[in-house]
Design a protein around this nucleic acid. Sequence first.
DNA 1: ACGGGAGGTCGAATCGATTCGATAGCCTAT
DNA 2: ATAGGCTATCGAATCGATTCGACCTCCCGT
Lengths: 352, 352
Amino acid sequence: MARRPTLATVAARAGVAPSTASLVFSGGGPVAAATRARVLAAADEMGYTGPDPTARSLRQGRSGIVAVLIGGRMLQTFRDPVALALMDGISQELGPRGYGLLVVPGDAGTGDPSTEQVARSPMDAAVFATCGRDDDPVVDRLLARGVPTLAVEGPVDPGIPLVTIDNRGGAAAAARHVRDLGHRRVAVIAMPLRADRHTGWAGSRLGRIGYVTVRDRIAGVRDVYGPDVPILETPGNLVEEGARAAARLLDAPDPPTAILAQADLLAAGAVQAAQARGLRVPGDVSVVGFDGLDLPWLAGHRLTTAAQPLEEKSRTVGRGVADLLNGTRPENRTFPVRLRPGTTTGPPPGER
Amino acid sequence: MARRPTLATVAARAGVAPSTASLVFSGGGPVAAATRARVLAAADEMGYTGPDPTARSLRQGRSGIVAVLIGGRMLQTFRDPVALALMDGISQELGPRGYGLLVVPGDAGTGDPSTEQVARSPMDAAVFATCGRDDDPVVDRLLARGVPTLAVEGPVDPGIPLVTIDNRGGAAAAARHVRDLGHRRVAVIAMPLRADRHTGWAGSRLGRIGYVTVRDRIAGVRDVYGPDVPILETPGNLVEEGARAAARLLDAPDPPTAILAQADLLAAGAVQAAQARGLRVPGDVSVVGFDGLDLPWLAGHRLTTAAQPLEEKSRTVGRGVADLLNGTRPENRTFPVRLRPGTTTGPPPGER
DNA sequence: ACGGGAGGTCGAATCGATTCGATAGCCTAT
DNA sequence: ATAGGCTATCGAATCGATTCGACCTCCCGT
């Protein structure tokens, strides 16, 4: 069978130079209508569907691809509405500009994108959305390769523009809200502190938290409740994990009267776990979340939560990448996080 | 500033031919240890981080990219656990083989990937996950370009291997289950029938359903309940949409005693809408779903649903793509859909 | 001591387009 | 009539690697 036709083949058939044929397809320069028609006819006859993207990329030095580097297994990441909103924001901004999003899958083990893989993929820019991991081996590689990169909540690197939110302030606001309601026995449910998945009391692990986001949120809680507030670490940011952690808290002797979940999904799980035990929310236990998601399925409740401007943040990230692609470096941005009271918090049981 | 170093530059500096330097990086042929060290040293000094992915792609004729073509806006698509599972299955199979997933964003309007965009993106293979849309303008372009393509539930094209499920049989099984319980007044809640979003009674639109999936599921229901079963079309496959549609059904005079939702998310919405009205499920109204998702947040209920082997299907898709990349054409596959009884169906109100 | 083979290196062709400066016509204004 | 400007086309260089056959050494076996 004959080889796939190339621009040169088509040009030859149409009796023009390759450069002219190129003009026809890329619409660059002036081409006589008759010539254009001849070239298109030749292309049609030969089944040529347009320039090879790879060759074009090589010559033009741009591939039309933006890499999104997310940690963890895809299924899990994509269950996280925050990550989804981010993807959506980016695609909303970049799609119309003709860019596609390359999702680089992780290692089988950690789930984080492998350096190898990232180094082998074409990209015009990259977005880090690895939950604000501190030290990412991929960063250096990317910077060395000269790929314009933007980080969302981390890694914090002077060489990389950063879009983030006031994690600490938000968590503190949530904690303050609960404290002002009168809660003294509180517990925290937190996302994984480090890449090595681990479940249970955070304890000594608090010293070396690998994710900026989690570190700052915990710091916020401690700003209000001091360093002794008990912290339970979950293996992931899923409703089920939140429920499991909350179950552990609520089944213990002397259970907390308020749960400070550091993500809305975890909080939702906590609400469900409480209800499953016949506890009223907020009558018996208050629950606060973080992120400010819409959770229409949390029947009958609006979660009290530290709300980040998710859509605005995501679009800002998208525009930031667009800036990078234009060769300008976007400003660092920090978005505020505000407490949004819902129906899941109230005074502690004794004080009604 | 000096230009980014290339393989040739590095080779020159190390005093070897470019071809030799190439061997060092690609690990292809035999290279003396001393030579390798010299080349690596030179690369290090010059800040060369490895071969340019685009150039390599051009020469090798493969880019390490698999395109995933999904319909609709990303945020919405990714809220659909079925699409997520698919992405995850693909990435599980393809990630270890060194492939990245390119998500091609849609038009601002329809949300479907634009032909333009698809034509411009490098890819070694493509997966259609457009909800089984019948006629996709992108298909021809892709086939003409010679991109190995696999379809999930559609478009059905003799040139494209297909992985699908028994939509009709599954929907029929769900309907039969409800009929055998004694329900005579039933209504269907269905995902969009065509790309033009529309809400309301399907009616005359049934003649030209654009999505194989929906068409087959509706056919399955009609196999049991005949052609007159009322069908309400939602604008999307979201919990909220299901709730809205169910509200419309339940608030009407002479409401159905059973709702056949053609997706679990819609069914979940229906359950919530019923409960919000003080109706008991299944005491006052039964609800059946389709897909067989785990919905841990559907408090207190396990949804009765026509379950597809989601994980197996997704991995099969992943392996199918791997086959395509190896140059072999995977067999068409159809997975069975089995009714999985839960707690959301029971006899109609009169008959207890 | 000589033929054969393996290991190591190199040159040149190639992948498929884009881009830019050069050139050839042709028309218009002076 | 000629200079100048425009349009349409072409040639050749270039993007940055990979690949394949050729070639040279050196070592080993007989």
